[in-house]
Amino acid sequence: MKNAVNKTISGIIEIARGMATIMKHFFRPSITLEYPEKKPDLPPRFRGRLALLTNSDGTDACIGCKSCVKVCPCVDLIQIETSKDPETKKIVVEQFTIDIGRCIFCGNCTEICPKNAIVSTDEFELADYSRESLVFDKKALTLDPEKSQRLRDKKEKEVK
């Protein structure tokens, strides 16, 4: 009997303590980020959608070495077609396709790239209505020189 009374009293006290703790949160500011209106602050290392950079004169930064293809864990995710320019004997990247729908955003390709031509952007809203629209070809991947420079600056700042 005494035991039961003790148990009841301690139970009531503990429940009251728990409820008081919950009530404390009533007055705390909410932690919700109202997403579509407010975007999260992304750190500079964030790995978003991949993009190709261009040099300041508008030429491709990619030299077609296919290193990224070799380290990519998803088979055939990155597809590069190159050809040799008969005059300058330089490799020209003709096709550069990434299937973002299958990309796992591991960042292996950006680390291996000798010219830092392939980088991760801040873009993460990649939902789409069809799988085909997630296959990005070279035109869709390539950024213009201004944006490329901005991204390069950002990455360099981070490395420093």
Partner: peptide, 11 residues
């Protein structure tokens, strides 16, 4: 419930 759980609730 939303305020108790530091959320905003329907808005």
């Amino acid at each position: 419930l939303a305020w108790l759980t530091v959320r905003k609730g329907p808005n």
